[in-house]
Design a protein around this nucleic acid. Structure first.
Length: 109
DNA sequence: ACTTTGACTTCGG
DNA sequence: TCCGAAGCCAAAG
């Protein structure tokens, strides 16, 4: 799964971005946004700067965040204040079947 | 087998 | 817009 996620991230082209949640979903693990973050830490050689928080927010704290912003702008990604212009730059991934079998919120009652 | 760890997400105030 | 809380889940230790 770590690999599946890494593979998805590698598919984000220059000038485009995606989000943790979207990447997780595209890899077949819709609720593992958090794991995506972890993968970005461990796996090297990934275009880490192209992965953002929901809504196009930069989630990296401090200086790394600034660098991310810088790199993205260098790739031609447009910013709207602190957020990326997702409408224009978000990468659309082909749909993928969910791996672990679809789990649904139990109506609980 | 159990606990911790994330660059998360959504919602409410 | 900015917190805080709660939900989430596989990987790593």
């Amino acid at each position: 799964m770590t690999l599946a996620i890494a593979a998805v991230i590698r598919q984000i082209p220059r000038g485009q971005v995606s989000t943790y949640g979207a990447v997780a979903k595209a890899a077949g693990y819709p609720r593992c946004a958090r794991h995506v973050a972890k993968v970005l830490n461990q796996v090297r050689g990934l275009p880490w700067q192209r992965v953002l928080g929901s809504g196009g927010r930069i989630s990296l704290p401090g200086e790394l965040g600034l660098e991310q912003r810088f790199l993205l702008q260098a790739e031609g990604v447009k910013f709207r204040g602190r957020k990326v212009d997702m409408k224009a730059c978000e990468r659309a991934f082909p749909k993928r079947p969910v791996v672990g079998g679809n789990r649904r919120r139990v109506p609980k009652k």
